[in-house]
């Protein structure tokens, strides 16, 4: 059973036990426009909550993607290197960015559920 949470910076996290799969929201991709490049963190990197973890670039601009929680990177989505446009077509599915081992579950408390995120972007 996974739970999906959201950050004010427009990342989503699908929580499964102590592992979170992280990506950017459909709202975020619609604001960025055509994604042409994604830079992902190295597997094994220790990320602190709110640290710049990945970069997503559209034709016009580069945007940081922040670590929504503290933890080590377990896996990254290699499909994004070959097909950055996946971020536009399936932001909250196939275009996940990385999986992170959640170091401190209490950090999840500050995140939004889907209804709260919808209100945030309304």
């Amino acid at each position: 059973m996974t739970t999906t949470l959201y950050t004010t910076d427009h990342e989503w996290l699908a929580i499964d036990g102590d592992v979170a799969t992280v990506g950017i929201t459909d709202y975020a991709q619609s604001q960025l426009g055509d994604v042409v490049f994604v830079e992902l963190p190295k597997v094994g990197r220790s990320l602190k909550k709110a640290e710049a973890a990945a970069v997503v670039e559209s034709v016009k601009a580069a945007s940081d993607v922040y670590a929504p929680v503290t933890g080590d990177v377990l896996e990254t989505n290699d499909a994004l290197a070959a097909e950055p446009a996946l971020v536009n077509s399936d932001a909250q599915g196939a275009a996940w960015f990385f999986k992170i081992k959640i170091a401190d579950k209490s950090e999840l408390g500050g995140l939004m559920d889907e209804a709260a995120y919808k209100a945030h972007t309304a």
């Binding site: 426009g33 055509d34 042409v36 559209s58 034709v59 016009k60």
Partner: peptide, 12 residues
């Protein structure tokens, strides 16, 4: 207008 609904890539 910085872009229309088609987006920068398609417009280009």
């Amino acid at each position: 207008p910085v872009q229309y609904p088609a987006g920068v890539l398609k417009e280009h």
